[in-house]
């Protein structure tokens, strides 16, 4: 990297948004490295489940849990009695659902739900935040007051109300959550844009006749992404927890056998009380592990984007 004349000492530090550097810094911290690996594992499971479910031993419909009403009572994990028998690794839950298969299916549903909500909120938030900060004046006022309004809506109440009036499906729930989730991103992006806007390379682009659209999306947006990425990784975990929570308290989607971790946990809650611990522990651990690793990853990302680390 050393040029013919050598380069200036200060510029020896790597670029803030260099992907490689971020990755390296991320792996330097054991917590975030583990988080990253676990998240990748979950995503891999979800992708395989979608593309080639046979690989995971799933031969039935991936969108519903296979029930068995002939043996509805939970059966403990098979290896508890005979260690070499792994036919039912997590046991079953009511009504005769193979818990392992159900959890694998629900990982995909939960992940895609949270990705959809976060992506929707993120895109709306980024665009509105960008326009708000870039054009300022009345547009800024308008959008910021709008975010205030949406911030003040309790999303739980809104979600239940929407479920009551519009029907309880995952899609409606997602739309409702997007509606209350974009203001976070709008604020983050607006704050970043306000500072990047003042950089002289933006002014230089303006003075050389580059149009506003290009300035906004090619010059400003890429330089505001670091905090957004951190926010996304935290929000993905929050979304999964939120869906599980809604399902747990009984806001179940219309499809009663939709594979979903919160639902599994809620069913297991009743059976765990009478000694069938596996019905609660395995779905619960799956949620916990996912949320924890995503938060670890988010923490790691936040540190990795910190310019002070890049000396």
């Amino acid at each position: 990297m050393v040029g013919a004349n050598g380069w200036y000492l200060k510029s020896g530090s790597p670029r803030l948004n260099n992907f490689k550097t971020t990755f390296k810094l991320l792996l330097r911290n054991p917590g975030s490295a583990i988080g990253l690996i676990v998240v990748i594992l979950y995503v891999a499971v979800a992708v395989i489940d979608q593309v080639y479910p046979r690989l995971l031993g799933i031969t039935t419909d991936i969108n519903t849990m296979t029930t068995n009403f002939t043996h509805p009572v939970p059966v403990p994990p098979s290896w508890l009695h005979n260690f070499s028998n792994w036919s039912l690794p997590f046991g079953t839950t009511f009504p005769g659902i193979d818990l392992f298969q159900a959890i694998i299916k629900s990982i995909r549903i939960d992940l895609s739900f949270s990705v959809a909500v976060v992506a929707g909120g993120c895109i709306i938030g980024i665009i509105l935040g960008l326009y708000s900060a870039f054009f300022g004046k009345w547009l800024d006022q308008l959008i910021m007051r709008l975010t205030d309004i949406f911030f003040s809506i309790p999303f739980l109440v809104l979600a239940i109300a929407a479920g009551f009036f519009l029907g309880r499906s995952l899609e409606i729930l997602a739309i409702v959550l997007i509606l209350v989730w974009w203001p976070t991103y709008a604020r983050v992006v607006r704050g970043q844009t306000l500072s990047v806007k003042e950089m002289s390379y933006v002014e230089a682009a303006k003075s050389s006749g580059v149009n506003n659209f290009r300035i906004m999306f090619k010059h400003i947006l890429p330089n505001t992404m670091a905090p957004v990425i951190v926010q996304v990784s935290f929000d993905l975990a929050t979304m999964i927890l939120l869906l599980a929570m809604l399902d747990f308290i009984g806001f179940t989607p219309a499809n009663a056998y939709l594979p979903e971790l919160g639902y599994l946990a809620s069913v297991g809650y009743g059976y765990a009380a009478i000694g069938d611990w596996w019905t609660l522990v395995f779905p619960g651990l799956t949620i916990l592990l996912l949320a924890l690793s995503m938060n670890l990853l988010g923490d790691g990302l936040r540190d990795a984007f910190d310019p002070r680390l890049r000396r």
């Binding site: 050393v2 004349n5 050598g6 380069w7 200036y8 000492l9 020896g12």
Partner: peptide, 9 residues
């Protein structure tokens, strides 16, 4: 001519 050398090398 030139600029200040890099003090790593």
């Amino acid at each position: 001519p030139g600029s200040v050398p890099n003090l790593v090398h």
